[in-house]
Each structure stands twice: as C-alpha cells, then as structure tokens.
Design a binder for these strands. Structure first.
Lengths: 131, 131
DNA sequence: ATAACTGCAAATCTTTTGCTTACAG
DNA sequence: CTGTAAGCAAAAGATTTGCAGTTAT
C-alpha cells in the first residue's frame, strides 16, 4: 500500500463521522496538497473492492454523493433523520441473525451488507407519526 | 394525481424488474412522446416523498443510477449478485422483527428501510468463499 | 384567479477516463 | 526493468433548476 493510500485510509479511520469523497479529498489535501481527485476515487474503489471500507448513501440526505467508513468488525445499520440530518448507528444480534438467515435460506454468499433507515429520531419525532 | 404521474406509477407497478429513471422515461415516452426527463425526475421525487415508491441502489452494479419500485405491503431486501448481476428479493419475519426492534430500541420513527446485500448467488458461488 | 404541473434548455454535481510522467518491487 | 500508482485535464453520466407557458381546482 502506497503512502497516499495509507493517508486516505488513516483519515477514514480517524474521522468520527462519515466522509464523502470530496471531504475526504479536502482533508487529504491539507496534508499533501497535490493529491488529485482521481487518486482519491481510484483509492476508494480499490479499498472497496478489498472490503476494507464500506460505502454508504445515508438515504441521500444531502445529494447523491457517497460516504465511506473503515470496515468494523461488527456490521451495523445507519438510521438517518430527515429532521436534523443526524446519523445514528445501530448494531444488534437480530441484524446478525438476519444476515445468517439470508445467506443460508437465500443460498447467497454475502460480501457486503447495507442497511439504511430513514425517518425521524427521538428529538425530531412527529406527534402523529407512528410508523 | 395527474395523468402523467399515473402513467409513471403504472409503469413501475407493471414492470417485473426494477427500473432506473432513464428506462422508466423511455417506456413512458413510448406512450406519450413529449414527456420530459424533468417531469420523470420530479414525479419520482414526489412519489418518493409520499412513500409510494422505494428507491434502490442495487449495490451500484451498473453505475450510479437509482432504481425504483412501487411500494409493496411487505418490505423486502435485495440481494445483488456480483457475478451475474441478478437481483434476488428476500422477505422474512426476521426482517420485520429487526425493523420493530430498531424503531423501539433506537427510538426512531421509521419511514423508509433499505436493505441491500452484495455477493454471489447460488450459480455464481465461489468455491473458496464462505462469507 | 391561484396554485401546481410541464417542456425545454442549460447547469450542476459526482465520478470516471485517457494519457504521460513518476515510483516501487 | 516492468508493472502499478499519480497528476492533470477533459469527459461522462445522472439529476436538478430557471423560466415561460399550460393545466387543474
């Protein structure tokens, strides 16, 4: 792995939030101004292929871009609030069970799982809305 | 709902497969040649807001476009095969349970759920790959 | 009337590609 | 050496927007 790739992976691991390609590139440029967009995108594609990062859409809350996060040991889902734009991560045994069930009953070799939920968080909850 | 919207919804309901915006537009144009791209996109956005259709990415198997399907009574997940490009739909009580659990334990009013899985189907299964 | 919908053309935004030079094993 | 990676500039693809004219309530 080259230094540029290490740099990009490091940024993703360090970041507390989910970064889109443009933001990731901007941060990388602070440390090495000549990193190019193409390099960022090519590296992202490569890391995604190797299963080192996950790609998210976060319900396209702000445009069509994608977000990335370093893969963690435990898969988790993302709940995106249409009210405040916040992202809540959620992991549970029930999610693991569902994955196992899909792999087995669906006879499918799972490589990537993406579970995203859109709605309203505790603070933005709508009085009327139940589900 | 205007006639154009009815037309677009009708196409989505009738289609056995998942349509992207461009294909949807092409089909609609066969019936009414002056429907414009903008109308298709605006209608899609509106239907999505009202919860009448679901938007899918299908793991971006062929580019960054989105796919749409008329909302069904039962949420289901989509398994996209990296080998043959096929899409398998999968619904199960375990999925429903997970949704309930997320809403309750995460204290979240769910409006949209999108569960997409990428990997290899029965026919494209890789000898070595287990998960 | 008043508000919502449409077509058309142009713009925007994100991501990808071709090509040449620079590096790493 | 030989293949892979990086920079640069231009292209491609999907979706959105401004505006003027049309339709529906």
């Amino acid at each position: 792995m080259t230094s540029q790739r290490r740099l990009l992976v490091g940024i993703m691991q360090d970041s507390p939030s989910h970064l889109d390609a443009a933001t990731l590139l901007a941060i990388a440029k602070q440390r090495d101004p000549r990193i190019d967009r193409a390099t960022a995108y090519r590296t992202i594609a490569l890391l995604k292929d190797r299963g080192l990062i996950d790609e998210l859409d976060l319900m396209h809350l702000e445009g069509e871009k994608h977000y990335y996060e370093a893969k963690t040991s435990r898969d988790h889902c993302h709940m995106a609030c249409f009210g405040c734009g916040g992202i809540i991560e959620y992991a549970s045994p029930a999610f693991e069970n569902l994955k196992r069930e899909m792999a087995k009953r669906g006879d499918f070799q799972i490589r990537v799982v993406r579970l995203e939920v859109g709605g309203y968080c505790r603070h933005c909850a709508r009085p009327g809305g139940k589900q």
